[in-house]
Simulated scan of single mutants.
Amino acid sequence: MDNASNLKLDSFVQTNTALTENASIYETNVSTKAQADQFALDLEQLLNLKEEADQPIKWLIGEKNAVRKALIEKLYLLCNGLVCYANSVSNSEILQKASITKHALRSFSELDLIDFYKQIIGIANEHVADLTPFGVSEESIAAVETDGKAFEQKRTDLILLKEDKATARIEFNLLLKKTNKLLNHKLDYSIEILRATHPDFVNYYFAARQKSKGAQRHFDVLGYLKDKDSGEPISLGKVSVEGMDLATHITANGTFRFRHFPEGEHRLVIENINYKTLYVSIRRYASERSKLHLEMEAIPLEVI
């Protein structure tokens, strides 16, 4: 799995821990409990799919290559025996089929090597009674056949393993999207409702949720301001963080931005000479992007 997927999965594990440790808080709420239970099931399946997708294959490639090497060595000796036999009886057909170098054998594709060893085994078995003087026995033929079948099996095992890994990765990505949707559109809202009575648990939950975004870089807080009545952007002014030496300006397009906004719970103070000062509470955790769409109420003009 890539780093982003691993980071998100780690966040899910921590989120599930937060839910499990505080289950007594929400277990009487049928909807929230069902969402939390479904999340736990999805997480277990995600972890299983990750393990399957991350299965190592180098060991199997190594075994396949070792069997291929042994097959080529034995097959080359068998071919030499057949060439000697073909020369002794002037059999040009066998000579043509069995004449080969080690280099040529090593350069064969896997399928070509399989086809070739089967062809040579067939020729050898057909003339086995006459091959003993040329260093070819039933045992040496059987040894080539054994290595050939072992090579085919290793090749098949490797293909199946790669297919299983690819399938697991596809299923992982599909389930990851489904789980994200469950969290973003259901469970997060259900947990947020508990903030008034259980703020520590809710903060713990959302801190775990944000772990998956640790690798992202972006503006921490981005705000859009518009007139409550007209809907037009509010130009200029200042936005500050109450009790901190942190402020930014409102642009001509009615936006403001904070980079590296501090974690925790804070209150924004939004000021414009033509509008009533706006106070906005904001909760922000590590690497969380906050987008605020805010309305300000104009100060009524005095009638003279």
Rank of each mutant, 00 (worst) to 15 (best):
S5T: 05
N6T: 10
N6L: 13
L7T: 07
D10V: 00
S11A: 11
F12V: 06
T15H: 06
T17L: 13
T20I: 09
E21H: 10
E21F: 15
E21T: 10
N22M: 05
S24A: 15
Y26L: 08
T32F: 05
K33M: 14
A34S: 14
Q38F: 12
L46F: 13
L47G: 02
E51H: 05
D54L: 12
P56Y: 09
I57C: 11
K58T: 14
G62A: 05
K64T: 04
A66C: 07
V67Y: 00
V67M: 03
K69M: 09
I72N: 12
E73W: 02
L78W: 01
L82K: 01
V83T: 09
Y85H: 03
E93A: 06
L95N: 13
L113S: 11
D115Q: 11
K118R: 13
I120T: 01
G122Y: 03
V136H: 04
E139M: 04
I141V: 13
A143C: 07
T146W: 08
A166E: 03
T167Y: 04
I170Y: 13
K177F: 13
I191A: 05
P199Y: 07
P199S: 06
V202C: 07
Y205H: 12
A207Y: 02
G214Y: 05
H218K: 06
D220K: 03
V221L: 03
V221D: 00
D227P: 09
E232C: 08
I234Y: 00
L236C: 14
K238A: 04
V239P: 00
E242Y: 07
E242I: 12
G243R: 13
D245Y: 06
D245Q: 12
I250H: 03
T251V: 14
T255P: 09
F258W: 00
F258D: 00
H260D: 10
G264W: 08
N274S: 15
Y279F: 08
V280R: 01
R284Q: 04
S287H: 03
R289L: 09
K291V: 11
M296L: 09
E297Y: 05
V303T: 10
